[in-house]
């Protein structure tokens, strides 16, 4: 597959805004034009070519960022369907901001605000993800409305806050207030979950794979069930993260807690039972 590669030449001391760099924005531009694209770097506007070596096919819908660092913010912002970005290294704040489609793969970690206001597509992070993943973008009332954020490592605090639709899944632990004020959608945590899980949630599902997990006091236990939709969720996750297959297969019978009763919510926390 043809691709366009940007290789970071040096370590930016502070934020370099990458929101102008998407495959759709670069498509059919010549290399000099791409190098001349202006990026916000702190208070200054700098040329992309000042920071990146650019090479490859300018007609490619796949973009590769080599030697990426956490000072690169808003990588993959507004990414659209049919395009992809592969990041070798870390990403900074607001990765995949208002992403609409396509695939954003990150080999390292992603910072706070990953997938804010996401509308579609897939963000696949091999490492950890910061706080507020899938939450509302600045100025928005609700969080992500579609798509999936899959994190190989740990999720930060308040993942999926006010999320409206879509999926967030973590192979590791999730921080405090996971799924707080959730409106709908699904969150799956294969590791431990911090305090306040589902706090204020109205609808949606939070699946906790550790049998030792506990739901808050505002959640009502409705019983233990083998829910027909769980195999579908598991099979969907297995497609996204084949390496999770063995752990996902342990998800069968769950205890179902409904809440947050504190605000009349009908969300659910599903906690795996021991097999």
């Amino acid at each position: 597959m043809s691709r366009l590669t940007l290789t970071l030449k040096a370590h930016p001391d502070f934020a370099l805004d990458m929101s102008a760099v998407t495959p759709a924005a670069l498509l059919d531009k010549r290399l000099p034009q791409i190098r001349a694209i202006k990026l916000q770097h702190g208070r200054r506007r700098v040329a992309l070519g000042d920071w990146f070596e650019v090479e490859g096919d300018t007609k490619a819908t796949a973009l590769v960022i080599e030697a990426s660092q956490a000072s690169l913010h808003r990588v993959g912002a507004g990414l659209t369907a049919g395009t992809s970005i592969e990041v070798h290294g870390d990403c900074g704040l607001e990765t995949g901001l208002r992403m609409r489609g396509g695939v954003l793969r990150i080999s390292g970690h992603a910072g706070d605000g990953t997938g804010l206001g996401m509308r579609g597509g897939l963000i696949d992070i091999a490492g950890d993800c910061g706080d507020f993943a899938g939450g509302p973008a600045p100025g928005d009332v609700t969080g992500m409305k579609n798509g999936a954020i899959v994190v190989g490592g740990h999720l930060g605090a308040r993942a999926g806050e006010r999320m409206r639709r879509g999926l967030i899944a973590a192979g590791g632990n999730a921080g405090a207030y996971c799924g707080s004020q959730m409106v709908a959608g699904s969150i799956v945590v294969l590791g431990e979950c911090g305090e306040g899980v589902g706090s204020g949630m109205r609808r949606g599902s939070i699946v906790l794979a550790r049998p030792s997990s506990v739901a808050g006091r505002n959640f009502v236990l409705t019983g233990e069930f083998e829910l027909a939709f769980l195999p579908l969720l598991i099979s969907y996750l297995r497609e996204l993260k084949p390496e999770w297959a063995a752990r996902l297969n342990k998800l069968g019978r769950v205890s179902r807690w409904v809440g947050d009763a504190g605000n009349g919510g009908f969300g659910e926390i599903l906690i795996a039972r021991r097999r």
Partner: peptide, 13 residues
């Protein structure tokens, strides 16, 4: 009833 959207498909519980 609960809606679940997985990928391109939506299911109802």
């Amino acid at each position: 009833q609960i809606s679940k959207k997985l990928g391109a498909k939506r299911y109802w519980r």
